[in-house]
Design a binder for these strands. Structure first.
Lengths: 133, 133
DNA sequence: TCTTGACTTAGAGTGCGCTCTAAGTTGTAA
DNA sequence: TTACAACTTAGAGCGCACTCTAAGTCAAGA
């Protein structure tokens, strides 16, 4: 079995990547994905490499990269290894942003945690008072 | 000095909370903030309690709560302590979501980390080859 | 042959969370 | 008194990231 060359329909890729078929076409249109190969009937046929790239795009998104930045990254990627230093810079910047974001989130969660504890205290007190009265 | 009763202008509250004056009025309009006290000239005058509430709203936002959910939360808050259990539930749900989000982000960052290391290896290799040739 | 369903395109529409505009009022300082 | 800055309102506009629509093509199965 030549699994390397098996080609996937847009529907299958949507299921594999969690993106909708609409979004897959949208990503291709705006240049996040290169022009996908076509079957004779003009239908898209994705390779596993394509799926790998889309998975990576998903990670960039989830890490907080904007569509615009992803367009820039994809363009660099298409230009080959010459742009590796630039791409590394982008990834490093993204990492810093994401880490800052996580630190802030952690702080906020701490405060929300306190709030939950405090409120549960108040609720417990209210129940005790009811028992007394 | 009666700092408790000092009242702040919308501009001052914008600076204190990091929200724009537009956003402060917007939040009030959609019910995230109760109707703020007015000076004789109809200008808003915020109390420090108001600022505290707005800071808390900011934390909810930063933790990923939507405006809609914040509207619901604010409405419950206005109804008083009877709604404490419901609010605690909302906060607990938010905490779970935020923690899941952080876990995912951590995973993605790990992969981005690997990618950076790998690319830096490729770049270093390329430089070595150049020295040889 | 006919229907069904998966695909295609260009382009319009949506929901979110602001963000800005226009027109008007008020208070202070030159 | 006149300029200016800070505020007010209702409502329009915007950027992002999709998401959907309409109209059409094509291949397989009843």
């Amino acid at each position: 079995m030549d699994t390397q060359n098996e080609k996937l329909t847009i529907q299958q890729v949507a299921e594999l990547t969690g993106l909708s078929v609409h979004t897959l076409r949208y990503y291709e249109r705006i240049g996040l994905i290169h022009a996908i190969d076509r079957a004779q009937n003009t239908h898209r046929r994705y390779s596993m490499d394509d799926v790998g790239w889309i998975d990576f795009l998903n990670k960039l998104r989830a890490a907080g990269m904007s569509i615009q930045q992803m367009q820039a990254y994809s363009e660099l990627q298409r230009q080959g290894d010459v742009t590796l230093p630039e791409r590394v810079e982008m990834l490093k910047t993204l990492r810093l942003q994401a880490e800052a974001c996580m630190d802030e989130l952690r702080e906020n969660l701490k405060i929300i945690h306190y709030k939950i504890d405090y409120y549960e205290g108040v609720i417990a007190e209210g129940e005790n008072l009811q028992e007394v009265s």
